[in-house]
Amino acid sequence: MIRSGTKGRILDVIFSSATKICAISVFLIIVAIMVALFAGAWPALKKFGLSFIFSAEWNPVTEQFGALVAIYGTVVTSIIAMLIGVPVSFGIAIFITELCPSWLKQPIATAIELLAAIPSIIYGMWGLFVFAPFFADHIEPWISSTLGNLPIIGPLFSGPPLGIGVLTAGIILGIMVIPFMASVFRDLFEVVPPVLKESAYGIGATTWEVIKKIVLPYTKVGVVGAIMLGLGRALGETMAVTFVIGNADRLETSLLMPGNTISSSLANQFTEAVGEIYTSSLIALGLILFFLTFLVLALAKYLLIRLTLKEGVRT
């Protein structure tokens, strides 16, 4: 039923202002979070200045705090997660959309969605009780006896096989981001018009060429977005990492040794943090994580702009 006259117009105004309020509230919330984080972090930032970012010391007893260990752990675990997650999700999505027999499509898609629905603490427990022991007994000795002896990258892969550490955390994170990225990739690849792909196949392109020349260029904006979504999740993931990273506030060269991430430090230490500087340093960690995620998003936007520019040149 269509309402007529002023009543309809009023409803319209109400509707549009309601949606506007919803949209603006996002900005307000972001600004409020920023302000709160900044205010909370101020005592620590004032005391330590820039050295807060570069100091690897985290000592609640002497109240000397630096974020380097947590930043390093956060970044490194996320990079490992991306190195594993992106190719695998890509493979999954391509297989489902291009190669998979149609009777297998739905079961795989459902399995991916189920993986995405598993709470992160379950990943953490699985990581600690199942994956870490397996990793310690079977994979890590092999890694340290082969990769560990290589020049340059050797130190990254040496050390006792604890099963718990930065590498384990990265792998678990990788597994966690796969369902997210894979299902977005799949949705993206599915909207590529069949006409385009069929024309390419028609002129004799291989599957790989179709993916590279047709599917990817058509979906690149979404692909970058999906990768950033996965990276965002990897950067901020807390519980699963806390379980398997070893929570040691020391800088170790080896990826097999324990480390710490920003969100896991926060989860571990916030409840019992006493004293202004300690609490404030933890909030400052949160602020840094906020900026890191912001940086990732900005980088994604920049990449997209560059991609679109290039496109214009080529045609």
Binding site: E57, W58, N59, P60, V61, L162, G246, N247, R250
Partner: peptide
């Protein structure tokens, strides 16, 4: 504390 060694 700042533990000299170990995992947490």
């Amino acid at each position: 504390v700042a533990w000299p060694t170990g995992i947490g």
